[in-house]
Design a protein around this nucleic acid. Sequence first.
DNA 1: TTTACAGCGTC
DNA 2: CTCGGAA
DNA 3: TTCCGAGGACGCTGTAAA
Length: 507
Amino acid sequence: MLLRDLVDVSTAVAATRSRKEKTRLLADLLLAAEPEERSLVAHFLSGRLRQRRTGLGWRSLQALPSPAAAPSLDVTGVDAAFEAMSELAGAGSQGARTALTAELFGAATAPEQDWLRSVAVGEVRQGALEAVVTDAIALSAGVPLAAVRRAAMLSGGATHVVDAAFQGPEALAAVGLTVGRPVLPMLASSAPDVATAIDRTAGLGKVFGVDAKLDGIRIQVHRNGDDVQVATRSLDDITHRLPEVVAIVRALPATRLVLDGEALALADDGRPRPFQETASRTATDGEGGTVVTPYFFDLLHLDGADLLDRPATERWAELERLVPEQHRVRRWVGTDPAAAQAFASAALAAGHEGVVVKSATAPYDAGRRGAAWIKVKPVHTLDLVVLAVEHGSGRRKGWLSNIHLGARDPSQPGGFVMLGKTFKGMTDDILRWQTERFGELAVADDGWVVTVRPEQVVEIAFDGLQRSTRYPGGLALRFARVVRYRDDKTAEEADTIETVRSHLLQH
DNA sequence: TTTACAGCGTC
DNA sequence: CTCGGAA
DNA sequence: TTCCGAGGACGCTGTAAA
């Protein structure tokens, strides 16, 4: 299949907002592909390469050769080129990568170059990613969507099941949980408080569970005999980085199992260390000084029995039989909202991030973010001052979007210290308003960042503070988002860096 | 040999 | 990871 | 309800540049 055909479809998909129309366009292209190309085409249509890393990024794709006049590239050749780049390593590899890039992009027409750059940097914006492609796979193969979805979740993604889908419903149905092949993890939606979470997940009078929410990294552990694998949330294999987790799982009294949990670094007193320490340890090749401790909260398979479709209470019971308490997430089960709230407070007091309220009856819905699991985390707020704002891109082009946030700090030149940026929590109305407002306050514009007079106060919600080497205060906000602009406060009434530091002490 | 930076993954 | 818009 | 896309902070790794 010519790349041109794929790029044309991507352009058409981007041009319509109708999800059904997008699905139809994608399905038609899958049907037009040769059978051996279908999986690759599904990757490309999902906006992803088959290769996990190519070494290509925004920077290295800035300067490109002149585009070709006529299309000639085919999808298999493009995949081969990216594969070659992904295999480059060692001295001189950057030069070789540049040469391969020039060759590939030089053979591409202008629209093909645009698409190639987008897919390489992971920014294909066509209003359709894997979920819509999953619909398209079902439509083009003539099999039920639910069957494709389920197979995709259990095999780590839709692109893995394209061939099975085209073989028919029987082949799809045969795709099950396989020990040793990670499944997409079940996700949690969120609620502002425990009572709301209970209401949404169970309802009054029903049994539900409440898990402590640990601030570490998600791990999915598969064991087949002595063979143990550890996967991250995105199904990356990090087995070699976590030998202590491997040893713990290998010691469990079973031979075949799949566990879901969280791993984190602990202080000597057992309290969790800051997330950054866990992240550092789990991102490091080889054993570091920090030890990570696994805590499991679900069991998907045990010695030949798939537990995915069993109600949560049954999976929890099996988990309790298999895993000793010291490696299980703290869990409360009952019907009393007040007791649940007390458990949540205790979890916070123990240094955890919050809780996850869980349906007692729901199956393990791999890859889904539904009402069966609902996380609740406390929210902090500060009144900060906007120091600058960035021009938006994509659907925010033409608006001033990402704002730079400062706290009052008399010791700093200018009187403010920057704590981070945010683009979250802005409605289109707010975007319109702030575009006008910061236009009035602007004192400089380098084409990307507009510096403004520090006069506008904004109420910012955030999840916590982290140590920063980038920002002069040594602190940065985690998950900052706009709550509202405050026109009732002047910049002199905004929060100070000392107030911010006091938040750190509370935590 | 050391430093800077881009790419990539975690949340 | 969070949030708002849209189907 | 589900999906997408707007982009945040950090830290590790490998290569190029100093």
